[in-house]
Write a protein that binds this DNA or RNA. Sequence first.
DNA 1: AACGTTGAAATAGTTC
DNA 2: GAACTATTTCAACGTT
Lengths: 92, 92, 92, 92
Amino acid sequence: MPDIGGIAGERLRAFIERIERLEDEKRALAEDIKEVYAEAKGSGFDTKIMRQLIRIRRMDQDDVDEQETLLDLYKRAVGMVPDQAPESAAAD
Amino acid sequence: MPDIGGIAGERLRAFIERIERLEDEKRALAEDIKEVYAEAKGSGFDTKIMRQLIRIRRMDQDDVDEQETLLDLYKRAVGMVPDQAPESAAAD
Amino acid sequence: MPDIGGIAGERLRAFIERIERLEDEKRALAEDIKEVYAEAKGSGFDTKIMRQLIRIRRMDQDDVDEQETLLDLYKRAVGMVPDQAPESAAAD
Amino acid sequence: MPDIGGIAGERLRAFIERIERLEDEKRALAEDIKEVYAEAKGSGFDTKIMRQLIRIRRMDQDDVDEQETLLDLYKRAVGMVPDQAPESAAAD
DNA sequence: AACGTTGAAATAGTTC
DNA sequence: GAACTATTTCAACGTT
């Protein structure tokens, strides 16, 4: 670590302040997002479902499929078979 | 809930897209922050300590307000109500 | 509020301590749960999926269905139609 | 991942059930806590202030350790390394 | 009983 | 890839 208190102290402060400024902007954006959700809720939409939707859109489709497959597998392993049997497992 | 598929579908999409745009910006900011940390690290600074420092500064800032609230609460709990009377408890 | 500092202060303390004791036990239980997850992970299970599974088991089946329906509805409203069309929507 | 449907299915179920049992106990404890608050409220105490008090007591306790960590960190940040040398930074 | 607010749980990201 | 931290999500609570 460079000597703190000397010239390096100045550099450190500069870095810190740059980061803090960026974080402020990030926080402001988070606020905006919250407000949009609030507005959507005020219009009668279910924000929890909206969040799920956005998450799914963001995720890679392969990952979505993989998670679903795994969940399904686990469900069957513990005897929680969903409505339809995914690969005729219930038949035999 | 508004009828999906009709006009409400449009509104929902608009909300979703607004949020996604804001989240993109937020993600970009997070990238920027990461880069600043990388640069600081390249200059020999310990990013873990930097993160702690920033966290402390943020909390200290938050605490200024909160501590006052807490102190106020304490005072009320022991019956030492400060200047303004928060509730007309003393009246009757 | 009863007069603090007198006999009521004693009662308050008793309440506080009872609660704190219960919260300690609650925290201990949370620790235990975490450990079981860690053990399951060590055995090769995907804890994220396990959590989903447990959540689903806990939820009322009606709620599970309702959420899925709603998510599906929202998906279609924003043009994110899943693989199969739930009610022959893709046919025409 | 162990093969689902075989012996691993049993293990998974065992884990799930252990967790669910622990969560039941945890929920029961949460109930108890709620009841104590209700009783306190019935005795005329302000539960909001009680919650704050408990939160403060808990944080104060936690802070004892954390403040030391923080102080240590600060010292390192300004080059005032305490007793033990955390990393051989000065060596090379 | 809907609302916003807070606290806890879960997930994502970062560092080593 | 394991541990730690930060963020995000979810549930509980009191309030109106």
